[in-house]
């Protein structure tokens, strides 16, 4: 199957260098061809294992990490806020 790599990359917020485009195109097509082996099925499926249902914890107010601890890893911080390029003109 022909795959529109540029389109897929755009959806995934990736840009692929021109010189790598052909390699990616070829590899993706082989991988997708492998994935196409699955036969059509009418089996039902459930997302959660019924024998081990998830139990959600109650939503309680508890002490959490401090703001400066959390911001320590942010690439750009100003006045306790994360800085990103302007989004609204």
């Amino acid at each position: 199957m022909q795959i529109d790599i540029r389109h897929i990359a755009k959806l995934a917020r990736l840009s692929i260098e021109d010189e790598k485009m052909e390699k990616f195109q070829h590899e993706m097509e082989t991988i997708v061809a492998m994935c196409e082996k699955l036969p059509p099925m009418d089996d039902a499926y459930t997302a959660v294992d019924p024998s081990n249902p998830m139990r959600l914890r109650p939503d309680q107010v508890k002490p959490s990490l401090k703001r400066d601890q959390l911001l320590k890893n942010a690439p750009q911080v100003q006045a306790g806020c994360i800085v990103v390029p302007k989004v609204v003109e």
Partner: peptide, 24 residues
């Protein structure tokens, strides 16, 4: 990109849904 592709509209049923059925 493979994940984005199999979840993209028009391909979801043929890939992701079948894979989940196969999982079961």
């Amino acid at each position: 990109m493979l994940g984005t592709f199999v979840l993209s509209s028009g391909f979801y049923d043929a890939y992701y849904k079948r894979a989940k059925q196969m999982q079961q």
